[in-house]
Design a protein around this nucleic acid. Sequence first.
DNA 1: CTGTTAGCGCTTTCAG
DNA 2: CTGAAAGCGCTAACAG
Lengths: 359, 359
Amino acid sequence: MVARRSSKRGTIQEVARLAGVSPATVSRVLNNHPRTSPETRRRVLDAVAQLGYVPDHTARSLKTGNVGEIALAVPDIGNPVYVAIAKAVHEVAARRGWWLSLISTEGSQTEELRALRALAGNRIDGLIITSLTVSQAFLRALEPVQGRVVVIGRVPDETPVDNVRVESEVGAKLAVEHLIDLGCQRIGFINGVQGTVPSTSRIEGYRLGLASRGMEYDPKLVVESDFTIMGGYEAIDRLLEQAPDLDGVFAANDAMAIGVLRRLRERGIRVPHDVAVIGMDDIDLCRIATPTLSTVTLLAAERGRIAGELLLDRIEGRAQGEWQRVTVLPRLIVRESTSLLRVERVGPPHQDPNVGRQG
Amino acid sequence: MVARRSSKRGTIQEVARLAGVSPATVSRVLNNHPRTSPETRRRVLDAVAQLGYVPDHTARSLKTGNVGEIALAVPDIGNPVYVAIAKAVHEVAARRGWWLSLISTEGSQTEELRALRALAGNRIDGLIITSLTVSQAFLRALEPVQGRVVVIGRVPDETPVDNVRVESEVGAKLAVEHLIDLGCQRIGFINGVQGTVPSTSRIEGYRLGLASRGMEYDPKLVVESDFTIMGGYEAIDRLLEQAPDLDGVFAANDAMAIGVLRRLRERGIRVPHDVAVIGMDDIDLCRIATPTLSTVTLLAAERGRIAGELLLDRIEGRAQGEWQRVTVLPRLIVRESTSLLRVERVGPPHQDPNVGRQG
DNA sequence: CTGTTAGCGCTTTCAG
DNA sequence: CTGAAAGCGCTAACAG
């Protein structure tokens, strides 16, 4: 990696010389300081325009000690859930005058640590990061950047960061209970990659849901795959082989559920008549799928918005106190895939979110 | 916007003092200069570890004149086409040791100019930008940052930038010719928002396709909407009203085409038997849709890869010559929505791309 | 192989 | 209201 600053658009010195003032005055004009005479101001701005001068951001940052930029690091920008988070954070950042850049970590811990290091090295002022694994190394790397990072996803209680989380067990429980209340007796569960935080909480919610309605857990009803459409597509075949009497499926995310819908259609199995299907996340595709897909929203946009506010409150110095733990509560969204009437029973998502806040 | 550098992880001075060497030596060790004794090296690294020192990126950048970062600015990170471009650029950047950040301009020209200004102010070293409109203001803003920016999308010949483009007229023509060769006589066209560069080239390709097979252009067969699934969904109704004898539809992008498929299914119109449908872009959803969607790929990933290489070649100083104009050629991908046999006739996309290069 | 010195371009006291 | 001067933290000659 080699590079040299190519385009020299002039320095504040040259602007000062051209305007017949000192560099300090140019700086004051450009930063809208109160005490500058209109006449000087005009001369400076003329000179700036004439030279096409743009202040060097690097020098400015070194001097002032901040760069005016935050970043959002996500495992996969192709995932609609992270896109929703990104859009929400972007909205907050723009409104509050901050520059936001996105970093795609591709789920690699090395990349996550790199983002944290960028923060430590003052390449950015703040960071919102979503990690799938939350390793020890990751937690250790949070220490030195306290007060400038927000984690989306669960971290241990004592971790010195602001944190936004969602009770996804509760969400999984809601989904399973919904299927049972619909009359399903044999509910299959397609989980994502084992060992990740999301998959662990979903299987727990699945068990809780069964238990709450007095049904027994049957390992034959559970398969694992990855969190993609194709993952769901191939997993449902294995599931049906293990449990041909299946009458309901809970998929760990909407992408997998959509793969399930597609495969079931191919096999001539009617949804929801023969098998009811529910996913989790509430991505846009749910409303496009055939049949439209019931799901449990995990309020991605809402979490993004909150994370953005928390981070900026912190680095703008508005928030000084304890580390925040904000938890959002999932909500069931019923659509055709679990509705024998094939009627959408629910309004638009993401409104009136249930948000609980605790110290 | 207020912020102050919070976490002081120490300076190079402090490391030097602790290690009993000069700051210059610390700098040398950290930058892997050839001439450093193993002993000194060890002492320095110990001190670094002990303090948890991370070099200040801002100071380093100011001194060296580069920041090691490029950015990709796209109109909408929710659009799969831009995601494909982003992933490809990311891959190139990572391989060549550069940091990539994403900027979402939301299609706003202000945001585009802001990205260009960030480049001018050396916040980043290089920029890849995709603009839907390419206004005069935009072109003017390219001047001062020559040699550090690559535009994806057509720009006037004399524009002083490296440029990656796709012959989307040819793509649209291919799509229409394919429908005609299939036996379609009345081919509707659903275009995106009028006045944008993409929509202009698509309507032109549509006309070219008709002309090349000796068919006449009928304004009744054309409607406009926006480039979204819902846009296609509502547009097909209008189109069918204007032209009930429709037997083929070309949608200006896959998202719209998928909306069309959905609406046709609702109305009991069979695809491809009653109406054949083709889109453009080749997003992942094409393979998931029912029926699977024929399309014309515009090689988004390929364009992203090329743009990344061009930019880095330029700012690494490997490319010094004329401005590059790289043009990629669209390719037809036939799937069920235009296949009476309902057989996928084509291999995986994005391999063996046709790429033409000219001075 | 290592230390000294200068300075990247900007903002910000402190005088005036 | 404006100028002079200092210095943010780092790297890169240039000596030694």
